Simulated scan of single mutants.
Amino acid sequence: MSEEGKKSWFARLKDGLKRSSSKLTTGIADIFTKRRLDDDALEEFEDLLITSDLGVTTAAKLSGELAKTRFDKEVDSAEIQEFIAEEVTKILDPVAKPLVLDPARKPHVVLVVGVNGSGKTTTIGKLAKSYKDQGLKVMMAAGDTFRAAAVEQLKVWGERTDCPVISRDTGADAAGLAYDAIEQAKRQGMDLLLIDTAGRLQNKSHLMDELKKIVRVIRKCDETAPHDTLLVLDATTGQNAHSQVELFSEATNVSGLIVTKLDGTAKGGVVVALAEKFGKPVHAIGVGESAEDLRPFEARNFARSLAGLAD
C-alpha cells in the first residue's frame, strides 16, 4: 500500500487543508506573540478571520467570545488555535450530517447540481462507488447533456464502479433523460439513482428554468422525488460559494452541500461561513482526486485541521 493509502483520514484532511490552516495560523502567530488581548488585537483577529473566508458574522462572533473571557489578559497562539477549533466545531456540528438514504424508496433519487468545474460529475462517481461498496444497487444518469465530456466522464465512473449509466446524445432533453432513468431504476430495483445536471452560468435564467423543468418532470414519475438535491461547491471559489447556494436554492430545494477541492485552496474557511449563513447540511467534503478522498463531513476533525492542530 502507498504511503498515501496508509494515512488516516484526519492526516489526509489536515494535509488537504494545509494552505487554509497555514494562512490562519501564520496570522495568529503574528498577532498574538507575547501580547495582551486589547481592542487592537481583537480588531486584527477579526480581520484575519474575515480574510480567511470564515465570514463577517463568524468573525464577529468569535472575536466577541474571545473578548468575554480573555480581554486584557496575555494570550498565546496555541491558546487561540484551540479557541478557534472549539468555536468552529460548535458552528459546524449542527450541519455535519451524512447523506442518509431511505431504504423504503426504490430508488432513492438524488439530483446533483452545481456550476461546471465544481467537481460535480466526479463527485457523483465517487458517491456511486461509496454506496456500491456498501452493497447498494446504484445507477447514474448523465443529465449534463450539453457537455459530451461530462457524459463520457460519468461512463468511465460507471465502468470503474460497475454501475449502469443512462445517457443520451449531446443536446438531448435532460428532463426526459431523468424521467427515463427513474423508470429504468424502478424496473431494475435500484436502491439509488444519482442524476447529473448541467451547470452553465452564461445564461442563469435558462439554466434555472431547465433545473425547474427537470424537477417537474421527475415528480411526474415520483411525486416525492428528488428525495435529495445536493449542491456541489468548489472551495477555491471562496465567497462566490454564497451566491451559488442562493442561486441554486431559488431553482431547486437544495437539501445539502458537498464541498470539493479543499486541498487546492487557502479558502477552506468558507465551509464555516456557509454553515453560519445557510445552516444547510454539509454531507461530505473532498480533499483529493481519489474516491477515498471524498468522505462524510465531521465537524471536529475539520475544525481542528483548519486551526492547524493535531488530532
Rank of each mutant, 00 (worst) to 15 (best):
T224R: 14
E159A: 10
A291V: 14
E159M: 08
K23I: 14
R168H: 11
F71R: 15
A149W: 04
D15W: 08
F71S: 03
K73N: 11
L262Y: 02
D173V: 12
R70M: 10
I80Q: 00
L193G: 02
K126M: 09
E246N: 06
L233G: 12
R147V: 04
L101E: 04
T265M: 05
K155H: 07
R295T: 06
S305L: 06
P103N: 12
S305F: 01
P164R: 01
A307C: 09
H283R: 06
L54A: 03
E250F: 10
A96E: 02
A29F: 10
R35Q: 15
I214V: 15
I84K: 08
T51D: 13
G125R: 05
L233F: 13
N203G: 12
G16D: 05
V88R: 09
H206F: 11
D39Y: 00
S21C: 11
Q239N: 14
F146G: 09
R12A: 02
L177H: 03
L48Q: 06
V254Y: 08
I28R: 05
S63E: 09
D40F: 10
W157C: 08
D133Q: 13
S2C: 00
A273E: 02
G119V: 09
A96Y: 00
H108D: 06
K106L: 11
F32K: 03
G135F: 04
F278D: 07
E250H: 12
V138G: 06
L294Y: 00
L99G: 05
L17I: 09
E210Y: 04
K212C: 04
G288Y: 00
A41K: 11
G269W: 01
P98G: 09
A235N: 07
M139V: 05
L231N: 02
L309W: 01
I218D: 03
V100D: 04
G64S: 14
I84C: 12
I80V: 14
A310G: 13
K277C: 00
K186A: 08
L37T: 10
A225Q: 06
G268T: 09
S290D: 13
V151F: 08
A273W: 04
K137D: 06
E276D: 11
A96C: 11
W9D: 13
D222H: 11
N240L: 12
H242F: 15
A275C: 14
L48Y: 04
T265A: 08
L194I: 13
M1H: 15
S249Y: 05
V271N: 10
L262C: 11
T57I: 15
E183S: 15
E4G: 12
D40M: 05
V254R: 04
A181Q: 00
D263H: 09
M139N: 03
T237S: 15
R160A: 15
K137I: 10
V109C: 11
P98H: 00
T57D: 15
A310F: 08
W9T: 14
A241L: 12
V165R: 08
D311T: 10
A273R: 03
G268D: 01
R168N: 12
A150H: 01
V282F: 03
M208T: 13
L274Y: 02
L136R: 15
Q244H: 13
G125D: 04
A291N: 05
C221F: 02
D93R: 13
T236H: 02
E46G: 09
S20M: 10
A299M: 04
L17N: 03
K90D: 08
I195W: 01
M139P: 07
E65N: 06
R12K: 15
W9R: 14
F45T: 09
V270D: 01
E183R: 15
S20F: 10
